[in-house]
């Protein structure tokens, strides 16, 4: 099977007043169709920098110095503006680390979905309304909230809207940068199960970035471990969890806060 996404020797610098700072150091990896690749690593190791570059959303002072990004064999770094606009959101979408970066504060939720839908095909207002209602209900938000502005939603509701937006056009790859940090664990689990159900149905791939490695192990097919701009280890989830090759990977597991005693089953939860 040929990979959906293939990243080769990607190097990204931030131009600063002094020496440029190399945030991503010649990393290579692939994502297969219908695969979830987890990307873990401590704060500042370069995860979001990679995510932005994959979407071609990196802006100065970030500069891609070296390497290739191939999406279904097409060279993403050489896309022209028109090609880029058609590709982004419909073939690859992103949930940003801060939900406020995904949403415009001055437009209603309806408007943000509607603009995206219209930019990628003709759709009537009524059709849009129906689709938006469906997407919001999927992430547990009452559909009449589509008329709200972002500040009228809770932090976790905004994050869920960002996730729904990224799924709407049924892209082939969804980059999720810390997509559930604002959610309680019940809603988090329901939504991730919904994402997995949709993935089974539609066959998309996910790049899943999180600092919650327990969660990452629950959802990823393979996991890459990043440190100081490099991928130090990449392998299947079971290999990374049970037989990590690097001490650094093991130290991430050791740092994981262990939940205190788990309450026995949920049999009498009601």
């Amino acid at each position: 099977m040929s990979p959906l996404l293939s990243v080769k020797d990607l190097r990204i610098d931030y131009l600063t007043a002094g020496e440029p700072f190399t945030a991503v150091r010649d990393i290579s990896f692939e994502i297969q169709p219908n695969e979830i690749l987890g990307l873990a690593g401590e704060s500042g190791c370069g995860k979001s920098t990679v995510a932005y570059a994959l979407m071609r959303l990196h802006k100065p002072p970030a500069l891609v110095r070296n390497g290739h990004i191939l999406f279904e064999g097409r060279d993403v770094l050489s896309f022209g503006d028109k090609e880029l606009r058609a590709w982004r959101w419909s073939e690859v979408s992103m949930v940003f680390q801060s939900a406020m970066n995904s949403l415009s504060p001055v437009m209603t939720i309806f408007r943000q979905f509607y603009d995206m839908l219209r930019a990628h095909g003709t759709v009537s207002k009524a059709q849009a309304q129906e689709r938006i209602a469906q997407m919001l209900e999927m992430v547990g938000i009452p559909s009449d909230r589509m008329h709200a502005h972002p500040h009228q939603l809770s932090g976790g509701m905004r994050q869920r809207v960002a996730l729904a937006l990224a799924l709407t056009l049924k892209p082939k790859l969804i980059i999720m940068d810390e997509p559930t940090t604002a959610l309680d664990v019940v809603v988090q689990r329901e939504i991730l199960q919904e994402v997995l159900r949709l993935k089974d149905e539609l066959g998309f791939s996910v790049l899943f970035i999180t600092h919650d490695i327990a969660l990452m192990a629950q959802i990823s097919d393979r996991i890459g471990i990043m440190r100081e701009g490099k991928i130090v280890e990449i392998g299947t989830t079971s290999q990374i969890v049970t037989a990590p090759k690097r001490d650094y990977t093991r130290s991430l597991w050791d740092a994981m806060p262990l939940l205190a005693q788990r309450p026995e089953g949920m049999a009498h939860a009601v």
Binding site: D184, V185, V186, Q188, R189, E190, L192, Q193, E194, V195, L196, R197, L198, K199, D200, E201, D212, I213, A214, L215, A217, Q218, I219, V241, M256, L259, R262, P263, G265, M266, H268, A269, V270
Partner: peptide, 28 residues
């Protein structure tokens, strides 16, 4: 109780076909 039981457990894989959790959450 539901909140306590739902925390990520690295030993349990999440799947799209597990309707049990969603059904339980709905009841609660």
């Amino acid at each position: 109780k539901l909140l306590r039981a739902a925390g990520p457990n690295p030993e349990v894989r999440l799947t799209g076909s597990d309707a049990g959790f969603a059904a339980q959450a709905k009841l609660v």
